[in-house]
Design a protein around this nucleic acid. Structure first.
Lengths: 124, 124
DNA sequence: ACAATGCCTGAATAAATGTTCATATATAAT
DNA sequence: ATTATATATGAACATTTATTCAGGCATTGT
């Protein structure tokens, strides 16, 4: 019994519903773990209503932390933390001007995503 | 000092960076909280690498829980829990066949989302 | 009838997440 | 210089989340 045959997880006891060769085929076609994790991180970071509202405002125009906080009824600290998250995703860029920091949308894909999800939600 | 003027959150002390009337305008254009929460829920539920990998397999063909678990090296219980989440989003549908339950992709928007994010990740 | 299989589900546990609070830094105003 | 403002950040706390575990039900095979 070679090490290759060792299974860490419970397996279908009977034959697979799909054929053995199909199983290997699909396993290859599946999203590989690293890519899945990067994509998941992306979606997860969009998965917060306050971050989405920040993005929806920045989609209109550049805004400073202070005005964002005011418009969204959030503390400036909370906004700042969320902007850091969005920065890490390279979804927003910023520009200092005096003591204000103006944030802007950096990526057009966000709007595509926004629209796709909006459509899905309409349909359901 | 009327109740209307009470502010629960720290405000920009000075004038807003954008004009007062612009502030009100933007506040209206912002994603409203309910819609933001629904969209956020959607993104958040896509924000898990195992769920994405499940979806990537179902994008190829219908599969039963057992084969999914096997291909993804996950326990059947974990897969089942995740499928419940995807069901609640109406992203997948299922069909019983004997003691197996075959899941399939229900929504074409998922693939759009998938592509948009993939593009974004390529660029960065 | 009995045992095995495929799937589901609730509770428990561990990990991740968002906010607040306190504090720090840099710029502007007095 | 001193004070106030705009933002950033780390730690703490509460909440959420994904998995495992134990047990359940329904279907299949013997």
């Amino acid at each position: 019994m070679s090490a290759i045959e060792v299974q860490q997880i419970p397996l279908c006891q009977s034959n697979h519903a799909v054929g053995e060769e199909k199983v290997d085929d699909l396993r290859e076609k599946a999203l590989d773990i690293n890519k899945a994790q990067r994509m998941a991180e992306f979606f997860r970071l969009l998965g917060d209503s306050n971050r989405l509202r920040i993005l929806s405002l920045l989609a209109q125009q550049e805004l400073c932390v202070c005005d964002l906080a005011n418009m969204l009824d959030m503390s400036e600290s909370a906004v700042s933390h969320q902007l850091r998250t969005l920065r890490s995703l390279r979804l927003v860029g910023y520009q200092k001007q005096g003591r204000r920091v103006y944030y802007r949308l950096l990526d057009h894909h966000v709007l595509d995503l926004y629209r796709s999800v909006a459509e899905h939600l309409e349909e359901v």
